[in-house]
Design a protein around this nucleic acid. Structure first.
Lengths: 223, 223
DNA sequence: TGCGACTTAGACTGGTCGGTCCTATATTGC
DNA sequence: GCAATATAGGACCGACCAGTCTAAGTCGCA
């Protein structure tokens, strides 16, 4: 016996990511998860709102697992980890064809408006991400420029990534997001003291395209 | 007789900004604009979609007028103008109590999904904004660091502002957006060559008259 | 005086949606 | 064997929603 509830959650998460919470009907979820009738759905969830909350928890958690795993990877230079994290968001968005956005952007905004319960949940998750990034930046202590507020930079990073996801939803072109991600990495590098060793160079060779996967590995470039 | 159609558009724009396009029903619009029946609404608009498009045009235009007026102000240093523009977005969001977001962020994402017609419209508007910012950055020619791609930086600025608006919708705290805006200004300053004046300081004096003399202010790189 | 544009007013259609209720049949643990 | 739980299938309710339709009143203008 497979876990039907998990299947429902998976289907709902996919639908919500693609078309939003309010635009996803219970009937959609039932059809997509191969259920037979509403009673079965309501056997597992007491309401659509409960479904929404569980989807939120789940997808944020899953995203967190992947994203935070990168951020915590102990063997890689902290700043490089941040770059990899940014790349992972870009790749995830590219995989979604620039359309869906869970748990980023559209869904966050829409669900935040759909109820105070949703909003505080999303707020808390953003906080956790920011915290993780902040602590990463602080691990590179002594490399941050004087006066740079790590917590604020963390917010900035999350906000810019959110905005980048939004832009791809409007333009439907992943290269827009790639450009933003590159600039974001450059911004992060600029928060480091000049005498710090690593960091993607200041823009040197043409302003154009660069392969993703990693901006600049820790040992490679020093300018 | 006042212009009823304009009243309908105003009411609809307010509702859509607050609760989104799909969540705003025709009946809501009718009630908010003091109409009496649907026939009257359908006398002015052939469908909800047409209403949406006109609201989009209008609010983007209005926003454009304000924002672009700042960007074009010929008497102020280009970079300083950009800072003022950023401030104006922060102020606008603060005025809205961090909730609504027209024409930024949530509405753009939602409407972009609501139909290809909407999407291309929004895309075009973003393009125009980015273009304006790009040309502004290029006016400060000789001050930009080598290899800095003005068009890409423009996208980055818009994306970050979008993301910042989103963050305030989730956190409901304007100071988050203020922090992001400060960092964004700092980022812009960092795109300038070291020998150009730099400094992320907050601008203070508000702009005065908005002259429509768009280009032609070539002698830009004052200090 | 008559025409056409605008306004007020609301009933109605066909559809969707969240949610309830009811009836059955499997499966599982005790 | 029994009871709890899970699965299946669907009728139904009240609500809301986009859009249509009818009908009548106001106003400017030719």
């Amino acid at each position: 016996m497979r876990d039907r509830k998990a299947e429902i959650l998976d289907a709902a998460a996919r639908l919500i990511a693609r078309q939003g919470y309010k635009q996803t009907s219970i009937d959609d979820v039932i059809k997509a998860s191969g259920l037979c009738g509403k009673s079965h759905f309501y056997h597992h969830f007491k309401s659509k709102e409960e479904l929404g909350k569980e989807v939120l928890n789940r997808s944020f958690e899953r995203f967190g697992e992947r994203g935070l795993a990168i951020l915590r990877e102990p063997l890689i230079d902290p700043i490089e980890r941040l770059n990899l994290f940014i790349d992972s968001i870009v790749v995830a968005q590219a995989e979604r064809g620039c359309v869906a956005s869970s748990p980023f952007c559209g869904v966050a905004a829409e669900m935040a408006d759909a109820g105070e319960g949703f909003r505080t949940r999303i707020d808390a998750v953003f906080d956790r991400w920011c915290d993780q990034i902040r602590s990463l930046l602080e691990q590179s202590d002594g490399r941050l420029r004087d006066g740079v507020d790590a917590a604020r930079i963390a917010r900035f990073i999350i906000a810019t990534l959110e905005g980048a996801v939004l832009m791809t939803r409007v333009t439907r072109e992943i290269k827009v997001m790639q450009g933003i991600a590159e600039d974001l990495k450059r911004f992060i590098a600029m928060q480091l003291r000049d005498d710090a060793f690593s960091g993607p160079r200041s823009p040197s060779t043409g302003g154009g395209q660069q392969e993703r996967g990693s901006g600049a590995l820790a040992g490679s470039s020093a300018t």
